[in-house]
Write a protein that binds this DNA or RNA. Structure first.
Lengths: 196, 196
DNA sequence: GTCTATATATTGATAGAC
DNA sequence: GTCTATCAATATATAGAC
């Protein structure tokens, strides 16, 4: 028994981490396997030991992003009330203002890019949106809102739209300002009744 | 004097129109010059008579999109009051729900895709957002809002975010529903004072 | 499991006949 | 102005030695 398991885990992780960053910064189509291998310090030919094809790396990146989102949402669930959780959600994305202004939202960006394909990967990244929408839906439902689905969409759309504009204009204050607007909106909704 | 001017105008227009649709449906990076030439029914080699490089086609597409946006905003300016103009804006994009769910917003999509480049084209499409933001800013300013810039961002971000979600989820009702939410929001803002 | 060398395909772009 | 043929560069993927 060699150190194969250790090496395998380390290299695979490095490849996924590198692909994740490169997809975010350069886009999926402009990122070559050579780029990924180089960034991960893995020889090009060795990539195919871990991934059958580029599509498999894309899927692995989506899985990693999804897991990160789940972790982030679990952290929000520590807050005692739904309004506090929703406000904390706006804080989370306000903290990413600089990153988002530089390269866009990594999740929304993947969704938009993969939609352009016609090879069965079109909807593979939509889970990155569904996870957040479903979470927000549950919070608004706890607030007693009949239109929880619509409000969840408004929240996530507000985030994604702000990220796109901040990126297009290269201005992180778009994100922080819209996060503030969404916070005020949530607090207004919560004031219309008691807490949850 | 031959029919050169006619041919030139026709082919160039066809190439730009084809590129525009293909960039929207397949993305810029996945659209080859051969794709564009084929769709426009122009031989591949002839493309280079009209455009020095692929980047020039991209710029021409952006120019065409910008002109379309200006035309659309001029149409909105026919409405007598700022609230009516803003509500009409939400109607405009509600009408594009199906297209947007199928392939995303053509303007936001271009911004997101070009940002991934590092060749000086990163911000070339941002004018497609600025045009709309500046227009919305003027409407909110006429409404007497001190926070007109922030509100303009909210409106356009709401549109772009809804487009991204509708595309990711392949659900046009996300666009129509968020257009309705934005309309209610605008009417609420307008009711806080008289008209403009 | 690892890595070098290379096959195969595609693409942006050019040369040059007409 | 138009179009065919093709170059040169790049990218995914594989072969096969170690």
């Amino acid at each position: 028994m060699t150190n194969s398991v250790i090496a395998r885990a380390g290299k695979r992780e490095r490849l996924v981490a590198s692909a994740r960053e490169l997809f975010h910064h350069q886009g999926v189509e402009r990122t070559t396997l050579a780029d990924i291998a180089h960034a991960a310090e893995v020889p090009l030919g060795n990539v195919y030991y871990y991934f059958k094809a580029k599509d498999d790396i894309i899927r692995a990146v989506i899985d990693a992003q999804a897991e990160e989102i789940r972790t982030r949402l679990r952290a929000l669930d520590q807050h005692p009330t739904a309004p506090e959780r929703l406000v904390a959600f706006t804080h989370q994305f306000a903290q990413q203002a600089d990153m988002v202004a530089s390269h866009g939202c990594p999740h929304g960006g993947l969704c938009a890019q993969l939609d352009k394909r016609r090879d069965g990967m079109e909807k593979a990244a939509s889970v990155l949106m569904s996870l957040q929408i479903d979470w927000a839906y549950e919070q608004f439902r706890l607030l007693g809102r009949e239109d929880a689905q619509s409000l969840a969409m408004t929240l996530v759309a507000g985030y994604q739209g702000a990220a796109l504009l901040a990126n297009a204009l290269q201005d992180p204050t778009v994100v922080t300002d819209q996060a503030r607007q969404l916070r005020l909106w949530i607090e207004h909704l919560a004031d219309e009744r008691g807490d949850a």
